[in-house]
Amino acid sequence: MFALTIRSLRRAHWIAFFAGLLLCWCVLFAMAVPAELRALEATYGTSVVEFLCTGLLGTSSFASAFAMWVLMSAAMMAPTAVPTLATYDDLGQVTKTGFWQLLGGYIAVWVGLSGVAALVQVGLYRAGLIGGLGQSLSLPLTVALLIGAGLYQFSAMNEACLSRCRAPLTFFIQHWEEGPFRNGLRLGLDCVGCCWALMALAFVGGTMNLGFMGLAMLLMTLEKLPDVGRHLTKPLGGMLIASGLALPLIS
Score class of each variant (00 low, 15 high):
Met208Tyr: 04
Leu225Asn: 01
Gly237Cys: 09
Phe171Ser: 10
Val204Phe: 05
Met157Thr: 03
Asn209Val: 09
Gly238Met: 10
Gly179Ala: 08
Phe212Trp: 11
Leu218Glu: 03
Val192Arg: 00
Met213Phe: 12
Leu218Thr: 14
Pro226Thr: 07
Glu177Gly: 12
Leu210Ser: 11
Leu151Asp: 02
Ile147Pro: 09
Ala149Glu: 07
Asp190His: 12
Met199Trp: 08
Gly211Phe: 13
Leu218Phe: 13
Thr207Leu: 13
Gly150Val: 11
Trp196Thr: 15
Val143Tyr: 00
Leu145Trp: 05
Cys195Gln: 01
Ala216Pro: 00
His231Val: 08
Glu223Cys: 04
Leu201Gly: 02
Leu187His: 13
Leu139Pro: 05
Asp190Gly: 07
Gly238His: 12
Leu232Cys: 09
Ala200Lys: 09
Asp227Lys: 13
Gly229Asp: 01
Phe203Arg: 09
Phe154Val: 01
Val143Met: 02
Leu169Val: 15
Glu159Asp: 04
Leu218Ala: 12
Ser163Ile: 04
Ala160Val: 05
Pro180Tyr: 04
Gln153Ser: 12
Ile173Gly: 09
Gly237Met: 09
Gly148Leu: 14
Val228Arg: 06
Val192Gly: 00
Met199Glu: 02
Val204Trp: 05
Phe203Asp: 08
Ala197Ser: 15
Pro226Arg: 04
Met213Trp: 11
Cys194Leu: 03
Phe171Pro: 10
Leu169Ala: 15
Cys191Asn: 06
Leu215Lys: 07
Arg164Asp: 06
Leu236Pro: 12
Arg182Trp: 11
Val228Trp: 01
Ala160Thr: 09
Leu189Pro: 09
Ala216Asn: 08
Gly211Trp: 10
Leu218Ile: 14
Arg186Ile: 15
Arg230Lys: 05
Trp176Tyr: 14
Ala144Tyr: 09
Arg164Gly: 11
Thr142Leu: 01
Phe212Lys: 13
Gly211Arg: 05
Gly214Arg: 11
Val143Leu: 01
Leu187Phe: 11
Pro140Cys: 02
Gly193Ser: 11
Glu177Leu: 10
Ala156Ser: 14
Leu189Gln: 02
Leu222Asn: 03
Ala200Thr: 10
Val192Phe: 03
Gly148Ala: 14
Tyr152Leu: 15
Thr170Ser: 15
Met217Phe: 01
Gly179Tyr: 02
Ala197Val: 09
Asn158Met: 05
Asn183Tyr: 01
Met199Ile: 10
Thr142His: 02
Gly150Trp: 08
Phe203Glu: 02
Ala167Leu: 07
Leu215Thr: 10
Asp190Gln: 08
Leu139Cys: 03
Arg230Gln: 13
Leu151Arg: 06
Leu198Glu: 05
Ala156Gln: 06
Leu146Gly: 08
Thr170Cys: 04
His231Ala: 14
Leu185Pro: 06
Tyr152Ala: 10
Asp190Ala: 12
Lys234Arg: 14
Cys191Arg: 00
Met208Ser: 04
Leu169Arg: 15
Pro180Phe: 11
Arg166Lys: 13
Ala149Tyr: 10
Leu185Gly: 03
Gly229Arg: 00
Glu177Val: 13
Ile173Pro: 06
Leu236Met: 15
Thr221Cys: 01
Ser155Leu: 06
Ala197Phe: 06
Arg166Trp: 07
Phe212Ile: 15
Leu162Ser: 06
Asn183Phe: 01
Gly193Cys: 11
Lys224Ile: 01
Leu189His: 01
Ile147Trp: 00
Ala167Phe: 04
His231Gly: 05
Leu215His: 03
Asp227Gly: 04
Gly238Trp: 10
Met208Arg: 13
Gly229Lys: 00
Val228Asn: 00
Arg182Thr: 08
Cys195Phe: 02
Gly188Val: 03
